Each structure stands twice: as structure tokens, then as C-alpha cells.
Amino acid sequence: MPGHELRYDVNCSILFTELPLLERPAAARAAGFDAVEFWWPFAEAVPPASQVEAFLAALSDADVQLVGLNFFAGDMPGGDRGVVSWPTRSAEFRENVELVAMIGAATGCRSFNALYGNRIPDIHPGTQEETAVANLAFAASAVARIGGTVLVEAVSGPQPYPLRTATDAVAVLDQLLVERDIRNLAFLADLYHLTVNGDDVPKVLTEYADRIGHVQIADAPGRHQPGTGEIDLDGQLGQLERAGYRGWVGLEYLPSGPSAESFDWLPRHRRGGGADQTNEGDG
């Protein structure tokens, strides 16, 4: 496997789901990793303080670094894919932003993924786009205070999520840059989503290498660990490395068996060694 300069983290919202959420950071550590990422780990946009404290304690007790965190994204199991572009949920999203920035300050996490949100049938797309711009600007301003970056990604699947290609996602970044001079946004290159949506991934990595703030991987078909499908992840990660990417590569796959056995493709000595480094790849 190439990418000796790349650093790998475990997405504990999709891996180790056989364990309670607060036990997953320690499981990642036991598997040899010292960095993790999560989707929004709570049911509510602003959960009780005790839940947040327990989450922070689980990270600290496991001695792992949080390197990626999603903003609240609605009911993910129910098909929601973010609320950034939903006018009726802007207040909820903005309350969540403040909490995300606090968690970032407490953990050193500097990369925050903002899922754009599905199209809503009775709301004009232009209204949703205006809402998204305003909410992304708000989020970027909030995390800028801690040196953070807001990430935007393309997503696959049946839901009416409008950002399907790298070009779709980067166009949102460009809009924020041109209209509001906001620079702490970056593209989250999920190599699985891009592949199954039909994007030309090598071309994407060439054209947008300097816009990528975080990378996530899974093989396809199946969304399982590398080596179970047909994506040339070796080649794509090598291309990223040659282009100068030195950020995190999030393992965001559904293990085909027990989570701890799904890392055989990555030698144990390659799993750690990143927790004391800065997130220079965060855009």
C-alpha cells in the first residue's frame, strides 16, 4: 500500500458499531490507531452537557486524537443527509455549530464536515442554496476562531442530495470564496462516493488536489475495506501523496466482518504515529 506519508484514522460511527459508541475510541486504539473521526455522535443537535462530557472523556481515556467531526446532519438512519440547506432548521444548525466549535477547541479537532442536505420538494432550490451559503459562512466563521476548516463533500445513494460530483462540491466552495471571501472551507474527497457516482477520480485528484482538506476511503462495490472491491485505492492514495496531500485518510467503510479484523490490509506499524502531529492537510 502506498501513502507512507499519509495518516489514517478510524471513523467510529461506521466501524466498531458492534460496541457502544463510547467504547469505540478505545477499540480503535487497541487496533493500533491513535486518531478517530465521527459523524455527529449524538441524537440531538445540542445534547445535554453530560453526554458531551462523556464523549470527550472517552476520547481522552482512550488516548486518541479526534481529527474529524460532522456537524449535526438530521436523522441519518432515516435518510437525512445534513440540514445546512434547510431553511426551517437553520437555527438548530447554528446552535450545533457553536457546540461543534467548543468540541474542536477541547479536542484539537480542526476538520468539520458539513453535509449539505437533501433537496426538499416544496422549497425552491435557489432558496436552499441561499440558506446553505449563509449557514456555511456562519459555520466557517465560528470554527475560524480555533483555526478550523469546514468540509463539503459529494455523497452517493438514493437520497435527493444535490452534490454528487467533486465539481458540485467545489462549486459551493467557490461561491463562498467569491461572494464572501471565505477561505477556510475545503473539499472532502470521499473516494468511495466519487467512484460510485461515476466521477473520474484520478482526474478529480489532479484538478482539485489543492482544494482537498480531508480524504475518506471505502472499496466498491459493497463499501467494505480496501481490497474487497474494484477501486484502485493504492493508485489513488499514491496520486494524492505525490500531489502533496499530507492530511488524514479516514477509514469510513462497513467492515465485512468484525471491525478489528478489517484492518489487515494496513500493516499495524502504519496505523499510528499521527496523534502528535498537526492537521496540515486540513486546507
Rank of each mutant, 00 (worst) to 15 (best):
G78S: 14
G78K: 11
G78F: 14
G78M: 11
G79R: 11
G79Y: 11
D80Q: 10
D80A: 13
D80N: 14
D80T: 09
R81N: 07
G82F: 05
G82H: 03
V83T: 08
V83F: 06
V84C: 11
V84L: 12
S85F: 03
S85H: 02
S85Y: 02
W86K: 00
W86D: 02
W86A: 02
W86R: 02
W86L: 01
P87R: 14
P87V: 14
R89E: 01
S90H: 05
S90Q: 15
E92I: 15
F93W: 13
F93P: 04
F93V: 06
F93N: 07
R94A: 10
R94F: 07
E95S: 15
V97W: 03
V97Q: 06
V97A: 14
V97G: 02
V97N: 02
E98I: 06
E98A: 14
E98G: 11
L99H: 11
L99K: 10
L99Y: 14
V100D: 00
A101Q: 09
M102W: 09
G104Y: 07
G104D: 10
G104M: 08
A105T: 04
G108A: 05
C109I: 09
C109S: 09
C109W: 03
R110T: 10
R110Q: 12
R110M: 10
S111E: 08
F112R: 04
N113I: 04
N113M: 10
A114M: 08
A114L: 07
A114H: 06
A114Y: 03
A114N: 06
L115M: 12
L115G: 01
Y116I: 10
G117A: 07
G117Q: 03
G117E: 04
R119M: 13
R119G: 02
R119N: 06
R119F: 07
I120Y: 03
I120H: 04
I120G: 00
I120L: 10
P121K: 03
P121N: 07
D122L: 13
D122M: 12
D122S: 15
I123R: 00
I123P: 00
H124Y: 03
H124T: 09
P125A: 07
G126H: 06
T127P: 01
T127D: 13
E129W: 12
E129I: 08
E130D: 14
E130G: 04
T131H: 03
T131L: 02
T131N: 01
A132L: 06
A134Y: 02
N135M: 12
N135R: 05
L136Q: 13
